[in-house]
Simulated scan of single mutants.
Amino acid sequence: MPSIRQFCLFLLVFLSAAPLAQQVNAATAPADPCSLLSPAVVSSTLGDSFGAPQKSVAPRPFPNTVQGTDCRYATSNGRHELLFRVYFDHSTAEATDLHAKLKMYFGAGSTPAVVGDEAYFDGNHSLHARKGNVRFFLSDGNDEKKLTALGNIVAGQL
C-alpha cells in the first residue's frame, strides 16, 4: 500500500508535468502563418480571384500578449479584400482567456459559429475563432457562410 509520502511525491510530479503537457500539445506558428490560407483556397471559397497576401504584424490585443500576423488578400481590381489575423498564444488556457476577454468587447450581439473549439460572428459579420492555443479572425464583409468555410479550413490545419 502506498504511503502518504509516495502519494505526495506522485502528486507533486503530476502537477509539475501538467503545464508542460499542455505546452507540448500547443500549435507552433509556421514560418509563414499566411500559408494557413492559400490564395487558391481563398479564391475558390469566396468566388473571386485573389492574389498573394500582404503580410504585416498584427497588434497585441492587451499588454504582455503575443503579437499576431495580418494577412490581407485582395483582388486585382481592389473591390474585394479578406483580412486573416492569427495569433499563436503560449497555451490553450491563455488563448481561451483572451478569446473570452475579446468577446466582451466584440461579442455584443454576436451569433455563435461552428469553427474550431469556440467561435462567434461579431456585429460586422466577422469571424472570431479559437482552436487550441490559436486565435484567428476573418473579415471580408458579410458572408458568414463563406467565412465559416474558410475558418474550418484554417482550424483543420491546426
Rank of each mutant, 00 (worst) to 15 (best):
L46I: 01
D48C: 04
S49W: 09
S49C: 02
F50S: 03
G51R: 08
A52L: 08
A52I: 02
Q54D: 13
Q54T: 15
S56Y: 03
V57Q: 04
V57A: 07
P59D: 00
P59W: 00
F62A: 05
P63L: 10
P63V: 09
N64F: 13
N64S: 14
T65N: 05
T65F: 03
V66I: 07
Q67K: 06
Q67E: 12
Q67R: 12
G68S: 10
T69M: 11
D70K: 05
R72Y: 09
Y73A: 03
Y73D: 04
Y73G: 05
S76L: 13
S76T: 15
N77H: 07
N77L: 07
G78K: 09
G78V: 07
R79E: 12
H80D: 12
E81R: 11
L82V: 09
L83I: 07
L83T: 07
L83N: 09
F84L: 04
V86C: 04
V86N: 06
Y87C: 00
Y87R: 04
S91C: 07
T92S: 13
A93H: 10
A93I: 10
E94P: 01
E94V: 11
A95L: 10
D97Y: 03
L98E: 14
H99V: 00
H99N: 10
K101P: 01
K101C: 03
K101M: 04
K101Y: 10
L102A: 12
K103T: 09
M104P: 01
Y105Q: 15
Y105W: 09
G107A: 05
G109A: 04
T111F: 02
T111H: 06
P112L: 06
P112I: 03
P112H: 05
A113W: 12
A113H: 08
V114A: 15
V115R: 05
V115C: 04
G116H: 08
G116S: 09
D117Q: 14
D117I: 08
D117S: 15
A119E: 01
A119V: 01
A119C: 02
A119N: 01
F121K: 06
F121A: 06
D122R: 04
D122C: 08
G123E: 14
G123A: 15
N124R: 13
S126T: 12
S126V: 03
